[in-house]
């Protein structure tokens, strides 16, 4: 792969992929919270950011940019099904 394409893929993975997983994790957390919805939202805003930082760091340290995207999409798929299930059960 050309170096510029590699970097672009990584930048997109870091910013967009990272946000995608962060937002989905937040959504999954809120929907799965057993207690009051306010607790779900307040606690749910505190921690998903760690995912963003981790994805960003990993996106620029992993061997292959394509692998990064593959993992991001796989995890996003997993989170999405979780969200769908939680939504359905609510």
């Amino acid at each position: 792969m050309k170096a510029s394409a590699d970097i672009s893929l990584r930048v997109l993975a870091a910013f967009i992929g990272g946000y995608l997983l962060t937002a989905l994790a937040n959504l999954a957390w809120v929907l799965s919270w057993p207690g009051h919805r306010a607790d779900a939202v307040y606690y749910g805003t505190l921690f998903p950011w760690l995912i963003y930082f981790a994805v960003m760091i990993w996106a620029f340290s992993a061997r292959s940019a394509l692998k990064v995207w593959a993992v991001i999409l796989a995890v996003a798929g997993g989170l999405l099904s979780w969200v769908a299930l939680a939504w359905y059960l609510k």
Binding site: N26, L27, V30, L31, R37, A38, A40, V41, T45, W87
Partner: peptide, 27 residues
């Protein structure tokens, strides 16, 4: 980052609150 959930992480908030202002009302 944490202090602006409505701007930065609106999905979770809006999934359980039709009106985001109600969150404040719950507290």
């Amino acid at each position: 980052l944490v202090m602006q959930p409505l701007v930065f992480l609106p999905l979770g908030l809006k999934a359980v609150y039709d009106n985001p202002r109600a969150l404040r009302g719950d507290s």
